[in-house]
Design a protein around this nucleic acid. Structure first.
Lengths: 340, 340
DNA sequence: TTGTAGGCGTTATCAA
DNA sequence: TTGATAACGCCTACAA
């Protein structure tokens, strides 16, 4: 049976209040008493009971604000489910969650939303746009005592509590590994990137290239084009590339536009082309089941949402700063047989 | 802000005790009062506060017993970590966990341990041996009011609360999918099974065969042999098979014995052979990094341990019977790039 | 510097 | 059939 503050108080002959002051560094305790209490607590391996803390914390009424650049992007549905699934638990702790979504990547708009939410929130979970102004905003929030957790995208070097999301370089490397295995190390590849202005997309491509260079030297990248995360552009570009490079045997889609790419490939009749993509949206799942995408590399979107809130609650309720600076998701490989 | 029993009591003009009696079906309440309370609770969307429950539950002192056939099997280390990680949370709920491990699959021994633990436990988490006597024991525990959750292995048709573990058929199918992709649908395969007497091993092979038959008709299975989960046998048998079937291009290892199989392959100089295995132990991780195993199919052992305890706590503390009868883990595909 | 007391939400016990 | 009350472990305001 775990030790409680009450027990420690009895054993050291002081009141619960004094033990609380020592264990939570609230000061105003006689050094000798303090030492005695610390010793006993350490010996008995005291660790606060979460339920008790949760209950006591309810009086505080904290609020978490979430900002996602998610509108029109299927991928984020799972992140939102992860967040929603934590709402009951948060509410049990007296913490409410408010989610604000935006479409596209307007820095000005994101700054506005952040400013607005910061008025009523104690902690923000931000799907940040990679821009110096946003970085500055994070540091300013820190000064104002509002903690920030970045989710899905990160800006390193800021005073955020931590980052929860994918390691994009590793995602690209995993895609390279899968593609290398399927093509037997000898393929001619087209890369369908997302947008040149999105850091994660670039990192995936970097990871993909480096892994190929290191482990599959005979793979050749014939072309890199951008889908702008949209299926029409994807289809048009893929069509062009297939014409200009009939020697292509594989395609790596490192962002959205999967449907467009696959359509162009079917229409060209090149069903032997090996396609590897990212993420698992309902449409990608369909393409995998139809064998038009051989494998897709996922980044646990549900867990991203869930974990971010868990860390936020720990911080708000128990004052526990996250152990790690980066909480990195698994890169899950899904093929027809395990996509469910 | 979520509604509490206290608020409902005030609104309906009764005491908290009465509301509690209604909401938890304890009887002894005037039908009219009951209806009024139920109506208000439903309207306000009452849902009990977990922290409050946890605290109140502490007086009960429940105990969970765990039995694992894990000795000498590296795979279970992760399951044990998953269990251990829940100990603090369980203790916060006043629940203690006692783990008993055994070596091998003696039904008699397992029955003894079950009997012993059942004296002091309210719920058992069992890594069951597939035997009618064990099935009978589960049903008997049910009669005695001791709930059972099966973990990693299951006996269907018994009165267990639920099963937490892998879908072995699906695991085999996923291995077939990976192997089919790597060998381009044309390979000559040897299957290194574990033991003929372990149901999961047989199911993996069944899933593997069926998936090959359905999606990779040109793959051929040249031989099936058993490693008895031990590396010497594995090496000797693999060596024999390589001699008798020089045409082999791929091996599926569906249980333990990975080191033995890989050693035989290296010594034969056949480094072109594509090996796919199951699970990720430190030794398998090493083999994957050395490119001697191309891919390995994992079953979230850590999560198995964790989830089983979570479900047990829900049942003991909140009386919540698991929603599903089977909690099936993901079949994770790990290759050099994402094995970590 | 220290102790006391009340409350967070739920449950259990005892009294009415 | 009901209500009052005391726990569970923690935190905090206030009193000493």
């Amino acid at each position: 049976m775990a030790v409680t503050i009450k027990q420690i108080a009895e054993m050291t002959g002081v009141s619960r209040g004094t033990v609380d002051r020592v264990l939570n560094d609230r000061g105003n305790v006689n050094p000798e008493t303090e030492e005695r209490i610390r010793k006993v607590a350490a010996e008995l391996g005291y660790s606060p009971n979460r339920a008790g803390r949760a209950l006591a914390a309810k009086k505080k009424k904290y609020r978490i604000g979430v900002v996602l650049c998610s509108e029109g992007i299927e991928f984020f549905d799972e992140v939102l489910h992860g967040l929603a699934g934590m709402e009951k638990e948060a509410s049990d702790y007296g913490v409410s969650i408010v989610v604000r979504t935006m479409r596209g990547y307007s820095v000005i708009q994101q700054l506005d939303i952040i400013e607005e939410l910061s008025q009523e929130c104690n902690l923000l979970i931000l799907n940040v746009i990679n821009d110096a102004r946003i970085a500055a905003a994070i540091d300013e929030l820190y000064e104002r005592g509002i903690a920030v957790i970045t989710i899905n995208t990160d800006i390193e070097g800021t005073k955020r509590l931590c980052y929860v999301g994918s390691d994009y370089v590793r995602s690209g490397a995993t895609a390279a590994g899968v593609l290398g295995l399927i093509t037997g190390g000898k393929g001619t590849i087209a890369i369908a990137g997302g947008s040149e202005s999105i850091l994660g997309h670039l990192k995936r491509i970097e990871g993909f290239r480096d892994e190929l260079a290191e482990h599959f030297p005979e793979e050749r990248i014939a072309e890199l084009f951008y889908t702008e995360d949209n299926d029409e552009t994807a289809q048009k570009e893929m069509d062009r590339v297939l014409r200009e490079h009939p020697e292509i045997t594989a395609v790596y889609i490192s962002a959205a536009g999967q449907i467009g790419v696959c359509k162009a490939i079917s229409e060209s009749g090149r069903n032997d082309i090996c396609v590897v993509s990212c993420d698992r949206t309902p449409s990608v799942e369909k393409l995998v089941k139809e064998d038009r995408i051989r494998a897709t590399i996922c980044q646990q979107p549900f867990t991203q949402g869930k974990r971010a809130v868990e860390l936020a609650l720990q911080y708000l309720i128990n004052g526990i700063v996250p152990e790690k600076e980066r909480y990195i998701m698994k890169n899950e490989i899904r093929i027809r047989e395990n996509i469910e």
